[in-house]
Amino acid sequence: MLSFSDTEVALSMRYNRELSNTVSHAQAIVDSKNGSIDALRAALKSVLAELEDERALRHAAEMRLDRVNRLLDTPLN
């Protein structure tokens, strides 16, 4: 028959409680980091959308510039 002393049972209970606390703290850290990652992803998505808008504006400006340059190179006679 297997038997445990009161000290062994108490040590086991303490170990399990500390392990549970450690797991809870680790999960809180992971959740915090996930929140930070999600915020950074949202910020990156916003910046990439801004960049795409800027690229479209630059492309439109380059097309207008090319049109003006073609007009300036056209003889006036």
Rank of each mutant, 00 (worst) to 15 (best):
M1L: 12
M1Y: 00
M1I: 10
M1H: 08
M1R: 07
S3W: 12
S3A: 12
S3P: 03
F4G: 08
F4A: 12
S5F: 02
D6M: 12
D6E: 13
D6T: 11
T7W: 15
T7S: 15
T7G: 10
E8D: 09
E8G: 03
E8Y: 04
E8A: 10
V9I: 14
V9S: 10
L11P: 00
L11I: 07
L11Q: 13
S12M: 14
M13N: 14
M13P: 02
M13E: 15
Y15T: 07
R17N: 15
R17E: 15
R17A: 14
E18K: 13
L19M: 12
L19Y: 11
S20L: 10
S20E: 15
S20W: 03
N21H: 12
N21Q: 12
T22S: 10
T22V: 04
V23D: 05
V23W: 05
S24M: 09
S24D: 10
S24T: 15
H25L: 13
H25R: 15
A26D: 03
A26H: 04
A26Q: 09
Q27A: 05
Q27F: 04
A28H: 12
A28Y: 07
A28N: 06
I29G: 04
I29E: 13
V30K: 08
V30W: 05
V30H: 08
D31L: 07
S32Y: 05
S32A: 08
K33A: 14
N34W: 00
G35H: 04
G35I: 01
S36W: 06
S36I: 03
I37R: 04
I37C: 01
I37E: 03
D38A: 09
D38I: 00
D38P: 00
A39F: 06
A39W: 03
A39K: 13
L40W: 00
L40K: 08
L40Y: 03
A42D: 07
A43Q: 10
A43L: 02
L44S: 10
L44E: 05
V47P: 00
V47I: 11
V47N: 08
L48E: 11
L48I: 02
L48W: 03
A49W: 01
E50G: 14
E50N: 14
L51S: 05
L51W: 02
E52W: 02
D53C: 01
D53G: 05
D53F: 03
D53V: 02
E54W: 07
E54C: 01
R55L: 02
R55G: 01
R55P: 00
R55K: 13
A56D: 05
A56E: 05
A56N: 08
L57N: 12
R58E: 02
H59E: 14
H59D: 15
H59L: 10
A60M: 06
A60C: 02
A61E: 11
A61L: 11
E62G: 04
E62F: 11
E62Y: 09
E62P: 01
M63W: 02
M63S: 11
D66A: 15
D66W: 08
D66P: 00
D66N: 14
D66K: 13
R67M: 00
R67G: 04
R67P: 01
V68Y: 09
V68K: 09
N69R: 08
N69D: 12
R70H: 05
R70S: 08
L71P: 01
L71H: 06
L71M: 07
D73W: 00
T74Y: 06
T74M: 08
P75G: 05
P75L: 12
P75H: 08
L76D: 09
L76Y: 06
L76Q: 11
L76F: 03
L76H: 06
N77G: 09
